[in-house]
Design a protein around this nucleic acid. Sequence first.
DNA 1: CATTGATCATAC
DNA 2: GTATGATCAATG
Length: 227
Amino acid sequence: MQQGINTIVAPTSEAELMQRVEKISGLRLSELASIMNVKMPPDLKRHKGWSGQLIEQCLGASAGSKQIQDFPNLGIELKTLPLSHRMEPLETTYVCYAPLLNNTGITWNSSSVRNKLSRVLWIPIQGERDIPLTDRVVGSGFLWAPNPQEDQLLQQDWEELMDMISLGKIERITAKTGQVLQLRPKAANGQALTSAVGENGDMIQTRPRGFYLRKHFTFNLLQSVFY
DNA sequence: CATTGATCATAC
DNA sequence: GTATGATCAATG
């Protein structure tokens, strides 16, 4: 068994964080779970965030549901990325909860989306469903920050979506809206409701939403990093 | 068969 | 309910 990576202490530097990232690269999820003394679920059907939380623990990310980056002292957000054998993302990437109310005054620069995506540690993980969870291998994690073009695309979509939300057009937003950023339901189930601005500026109840990165966006950033 | 809309676990 | 970690699975 590997030594020295079963830490829960937050990394104090980027170099320290990346050393830990290198140490878990190439390991199967079962090996990682064993090292961390975490029980493995049979699959992800009822444990969708399991691998993400396992990696968090391995790297010493601060747990919890706080609206901050995973490594606040380093300004780095952690995201796992399920990949096919062709190195293509298998899922969209959740970014953050979408504010539906009281969002006047929020700009792209002060938005949660930009804050979360300003610097991301991506950890690729084999994600194909025919590979048993236990055998899926962790890939080489890498640091990424949006380049000017990516930042502009994200800003465009964010502004379009936030405008619609502010103007009471949230029910007109579908997952098709946005080139690289999507707004989709984000809740425990379809019955969950939250307040939002309606068509006439009134208050309506709607499904909570979250921001997600489209797969082609994460695919492209993978390409730019590895080629 | 890719995508959209729905859903699962957990902390507070 | 809000927010974190996400993937599932019905549907077109």
